[in-house]
Amino acid sequence: MSFPEPKFIEANGLKLAVYEQGTGVPVVMCHGFPELAYSWRHQIPAIADAGFRAIAADQRGYGRTVDATTGKIPAAIEDYDMEHLTGDMVAMLDELGIDKAIFCGHDWGGFVVWQMPLRHPDRVAGVIGVNTPFIARGPIDPIEAMRATMGEDMYIVFFQKPGAADELFGKDIAKSLRFWYRKSAVTLEDFDNAAPDAAKNLALAKLFEVPEEEWGGDPLLTAEEAAYYHEAFTSTGFTGGLNWYRNFTRNWERSKDLPEKVNVPCLMISAANDVVLRPELTEGMEQFCPDLEKHIIPDCGHWTQAEKPDELNALITDWLKRRFA
């Protein structure tokens, strides 16, 4: 089944590109950085074939989604805070005539879907985290915490500088996509024991400047897939996606009165060799997500949807059928 063409809906000030297949209980998939609705290309048909309505959107700042007035990606950094990101999903449900959906998110999309039941509990039937666990609100600004523990070069801290990462990754989009989209090169044990300091500190901008033949890990995308991403990011650049990161502090400040209990069925799927969203980050999730099932996909890095699609699809569809069919 080929990747569907989008339909465009007006939602929360956006002209939102929405891709869907199937009928039944709706499952909304939220992508991360630097991804697209297309990142769910292996999951959409599998979820539809399992008897569900599979829905994914190019989210705010990405792909074919634009500001409904300007026809460009939203301009202000604050336009990418969690209130906007979750509000987009609620507005999309409204326009699609959906009362409640199961939300499935990877990477940054995982942060969005775990926030949905806290901010909009009446619109959420269940949550699936792919690599990204539920993370409770910390006692200090998360950017300050990352800066203190991992330094200025840690990629999320580096991303806080408007324009810097945008220029670095935007000057050669094809190279940037080759850098990001690679299969896992090492196990977590090998990473912890032998990785250089720049890797352990997640100093991705420094690693980006290393000669390409030293990056490690096999390329993940086919030529056709790489061309799809290249066309999308040539159109938008990376600023919209990077602006999600530039709201870490704002999101932390504005979330202090939110509840921290996810009172719907939850599925957490980790990847054994994701060095950023490590499986051990899921430890203790049960106190926040009482109805939780957890799995780990072996021999898999960060890009789980593309690296181990069959394994991921099997876990998702089995859980959906048991809990929502």
Rank of each mutant, 00 (worst) to 15 (best):
I297N: 02
V18Q: 01
M1T: 09
G138A: 14
D257Q: 11
G63T: 08
N193W: 00
I55Q: 00
F158R: 12
E224F: 07
V27A: 01
Y19Q: 04
D310I: 13
P211M: 02
M285D: 00
Y19E: 08
K100E: 12
R323G: 01
D291R: 12
R322H: 03
F111I: 11
G138R: 01
V90K: 13
P121A: 09
H84V: 14
M268P: 04
Q287M: 13
I55S: 06
F191E: 02
K183H: 03
P45M: 03
T86M: 02
M150A: 09
F238V: 01
A37M: 10
L168T: 11
D274G: 02
E189A: 15
V124T: 15
G24L: 10
A57N: 08
F52V: 03
L16Q: 03
P142I: 12
A195Y: 04
T249M: 05
R64I: 00
K7P: 02
A194N: 14
E253C: 04
G51W: 08
Q59R: 14
A101Q: 08
Y19C: 01
P265Y: 02
L188G: 04
L36A: 08
H84Q: 14
E10T: 12
P265S: 11
C266G: 04
E283R: 11
I296E: 07
D49E: 07
V210H: 12
R137M: 10
A306Q: 07
T304Q: 07
K294A: 05
W114T: 08
D49I: 08
L204Y: 08
A325S: 09
G105A: 01
R60A: 10
E10L: 14
E5V: 10
V130Y: 08
A57Q: 14
P259D: 06
E286N: 09
W40G: 05
H106M: 01
R53G: 03
W215F: 11
H84I: 13
H31N: 09
N273V: 03
R178N: 14
G97A: 03
R41A: 02
L258C: 12
S176W: 05
V28S: 11
H230E: 14
